[in-house]
Write a protein that binds this DNA or RNA. Structure first.
Lengths: 343, 343
DNA sequence: GTATTTGATGTAAACGTTTACATTTATCAG
DNA sequence: CTGATAAATGTAAACGTTTACATCAAATAC
């Protein structure tokens, strides 16, 4: 049907082995021969068949990416980081989001055992132990994005949630707020856990009490931010500052505050985490923690390639934390002109 | 190395052909035999090798998706729609963003046609004629998302830009505004062109003049919205309403208005297009045009599968328009309580 | 009882490469 | 000039499936 290596070999007057060599990097072939073959291939619209190639060589030039459903703003940034890096190394990206209808374990297994990809980048905020075992035993390299702190048998790239949370909470404490509330994320979510840890640590450091009434569980959605805020602020004892453990919930807070005539930051200061695009539009702008999202993706890919190329040990655990940065808006009480928002 | 079909055949006491048949849908094999083989395969962690399979059968169970770099909010929604639909049909999704470099797109296309995927979903707002030819001659099915109006040799799924623009502009005209400005998108962008057409048509219909001073070219970015607004409003003759041809530019407008103390909608009414998440956070909420993004992706995939399965003619051009909906906020002058935003 | 059809399975030839090994040719030291 | 070494190319055996075709047994028709 389509042109094969045999045709090209005939037209170039060489064997198929030589044609094959013309298409691979480190093979001994005369530069002139290669040029000639590539020219003829070009003329005949010949491309090596990927299936045949990987059947024979066991390489697929493809990496797999498994993403969770939730992380909306992350999604495109992460993929962009991954895709860009993969493109540089001439690799393809096979994606799968772990849908509600889909069992994550199944997807990952499929990926790892089907031989379709050379390695996997896995992002699952709620990671069970069985996964960890599976991954650490796997023959194919796996890099996690956002792995729980206590897991150390794997390779992972993470946001420094603790540090980020600590510094943003420290920042509001320095404003003089003493009754600091927090809206945490879903149970078992490692980002949320770490951010809570940073929060607690900051309070402790500054000798502030950890008041149970000021700890509300949300689930990282807009809606939960809205309602958690209302719950917090309808108690007799109200916080004077709130740490929303992600920006999406902070957005919900802003709406709830507007609806109940509560002024930010006069009545209550708000800080968030993630620095998502939308948070920059809020009035006053949200003070939050910047996260290097696409870098998370590209770093993960770079490391994955090292594993694939055998430059690093496949089973040597390795935890990497990317540093966060504080983004100061007006929501914490800082005097901020909004004129500088243009980006 | 890993278990092959031969091993399973031996353990099951059948030929490899029978094992193969156990793994394909429409093959004559005794149910008991299949069950037994699948059990043994399961026990031995056997999965058919995808490369071998597709080398032999010419099927890859994979579709390709090429996306532009820009369209941020669309990205994740589109992929979600595509992935979900592909998953239902047991297909994998290979993504590539076109990195906004033209020759890259070419490479990507070639990659896609190298036999790695069974069909391609292509989204490129600025599509050149050479591509159209390439696509319409292609052996593999291609479905376009967002194809220029004047292109009719291909299969495409589109937003009804004209209708959407027409109705939102009609809406502001009905408010009584007579000097309606517009910020259009980048040159050659088909979405922008169609939206402009809808705009002009509405003006004409209501006997309003098309004033060149009220037409400013932006490029769909926040930044361009900001500066285009300033340009529009620093003329002697100012518009009393502005149609931003996408929401991202409307966001920029809001900031520019805030900085120059111009009140929306009292001093100037604003409407947008896309109904992106962020636009719901604006005060007053942006009146805009809702676009069924993920549906665009899933419809495209469904049609692609029909082409792959030969249910529809590969080369029969087919243009599909998905209807948009008007989202009423307060930015056009409508009295709107913001309480209902929670979604 | 024989001929015919049907369904389940086996046989073996693709599918289009890569690559270990063999062969040829060119290069060069002595 | 000879033998050794290196570089370029050829030969042919994998790689792990699918599938057209052949075979065989059982069911059905007459």
């Amino acid at each position: 049907m389509s042109t094969t290596i045999i045709e090209i070999a005939q037209k170039a007057g060489v064997s198929i082995a030589t044609v094959s060599r013309a298409f691979t990097q480190n093979s001994s072939i005369h530069p002139d021969t290669r040029r000639k073959i590539l020219r003829i291939a070009e003329e005949n619209h010949y491309k090596p068949n990927p299936s045949a190639r990987s059947l024979s060589s066991k390489r697929t030039d493809t990496i797999g990416v498994v993403l969770p459903e939730l992380v909306d703003e992350f999604f495109s940034e992460i993929i962009r980081g991954i895709d860009e890096e993969a493109y540089k190394s001439q690799h393809y990206v096979l994606v799968a989001s772990s849908h509600s209808q889909r069992n994550v374990l199944e997807t990952v297994l499929e990926f790892m055992f089907s031989g379709r990809v050379e390695g996997v980048i896995l992002m699952v905020p709620q990671l069970q132990n069985e996964f960890i075992k599976l991954i650490s035993r796997s023959k194919r390299p796996v890099v996690l994005i956002d792995a729980p702190q206590n897991i150390n048998q794997v390779v992972s790239f993470n946001i420094n949630n603790f540090q980020g949370a600590y510094s943003v909470v420290e920042h509001i404490i320095n404003h003089g707020y003493k009754k600091v509330g927090i809206i945490i994320g879903p149970e078992g979510n490692c980002d949320s856990d770490e951010r809570f840890r940073g929060f607690s640590h900051a309070l402790k450091k500054y000798n502030l009490p950890l008041d149970q009434d000021f700890i509300i569980r949300g689930d990282f959605t807009y809606r939960s931010g809205y309602y958690s805020f209302i719950r917090l602020m309808s108690q007799n004892k109200k916080p004077d500052a709130i740490f929303a453990t992600n920006d999406m919930m902070a957005l919900g807070i802003y709406e709830a505050a507007r609806n109940s005539q509560i002024k930010i930051p006069q009545d209550v200061a708000i800080v968030g985490f993630d620095d998502i695009f939308s948070s920059r539009l809020l009035q006053p702008r949200l003070t939050t923690v910047h996260v290097p999202i696409s870098e998370l993706g590209s770093s993960a890919v770079r490391y994955l390639f090292k594993m694939i190329n055998g430059e690093v040990d496949l089973h040597k655990p390795c935890r990497n934390e990317l540093t966060t940065g504080l983004v100061i808006g007006g929501s914490c009480g800082c005097p901020i002109s909004n004129a500088q928002i243009i980006f």
